[in-house]
């Protein structure tokens, strides 16, 4: 049996990184219990059912390439406490998963973690929730990843479609564009991109889309 057991040291290092415990100012002599209602408990989205098997962590292609990446299992753990009404850490823990390279922004959205989990926990769903919490708490930094997410809304309101060249320029803040020049020029030469990135196809009934963006938005950046 022993040779079937894998070395999971790196898994536990990442697990410990997200402060996997309840952080709460508990009164020394509480007079009553801190009751969690069933609907509040549902907010955990079964993240507390994780058995730490590591299957998602080891099928994640990013953990394989980027040694600092916290990985899906530890993200699930972070969400499990962030979504707990008794937890007071919030920003302290979210800061860890909000960091570039190690945090949620470096996920490639391959869905391997959702596919492999034997407990149907759907780690990527929790990763999306962590992204949402980062914006909700107002701690999203102005960096390439956040600009990339936010640009979709602006472009959809304006064109209905995503302005693909515009997305790269905005995310890279202009000056980061040098990395894409060579590929960009080839794409222009092959008719895959426009010299003028402002030329974007537009959806019909654009006023309808713009109105929905206006009345349905729930986030700010």
């Amino acid at each position: 049996m022993k040779d079937l057991i894998i070395d999971k040291d790196d898994f536990w290092v990442m697990h410990d990184k997200v402060k996997p415990f309840l952080i709460s100012d508990v009164e020394e002599h509480p007079e009553h219990e801190h009751i969690v209602t069933p609907s509040e408990a549902e907010e955990l989205l079964e993240a507390d059912y994780c058995i730490q098997c590591g299957a998602c962590h080891y099928s994640c292609p990013v953990t394989e390439i980027n040694e600092q990446f916290i990985g899906p299992a530890a993200f699930v753990k972070a969400y499990r406490f962030e979504a707990d009404v008794r937890d007071d850490a919030h920003i302290e823990r979210l800061d860890v998963v909000n960091e570039e390279i190690q945090g949620v922004w470096d996920c490639v959205k391959c869905m391997e973690c959702a596919e492999v989990c034997p407990k149907d926990i759907n780690p990527i769903e929790k990763i999306t929730k962590l992204h949402n919490m980062i914006f909700d708490e107002g701690i999203a930094k102005n960096n390439i990843a956040t600009r990339h997410a936010v640009y979709f809304k602006d472009s959809i309101a304006k064109h209905g479609q995503l302005n693909e060249a515009g997305l790269v320029i905005y995310s890279e803040k202009g000056y980061g564009m040098y990395k894409h020049l060579k590929v960009g020029m080839k794409m222009i030469a092959k008719g895959k991109a426009h010299i003028n990135p402002l030329i974007v196809p537009k959806s019909e009934k654009l006023d309808e889309i713009a109105k929905l963006v206006k009345i349905s938005s729930t986030s700010k950046f």
């Binding site: 959205k109 999306t128 992204h131 949402n132 914006f135 956040t146 990339h148 997410a149 936010v150 979709f152 809304k153 472009s155 959809i156 209905g160 479609q161 995503l162 959806s203 019909e204 009934k205 309808e208 889309i209 929905l212 963006v213 349905s216 938005s217 729930t218 986030s219 950046f221």
Partner: peptide
Amino acid sequence: LEEASCCGASHLQDYDDFLSLVLNAR
């Protein structure tokens, strides 16, 4: 579907999940 908008490409929902649902439902 000329009226259709962008689906959000798995990124819009990171920023605004509800908006992404509304646009895709549309």
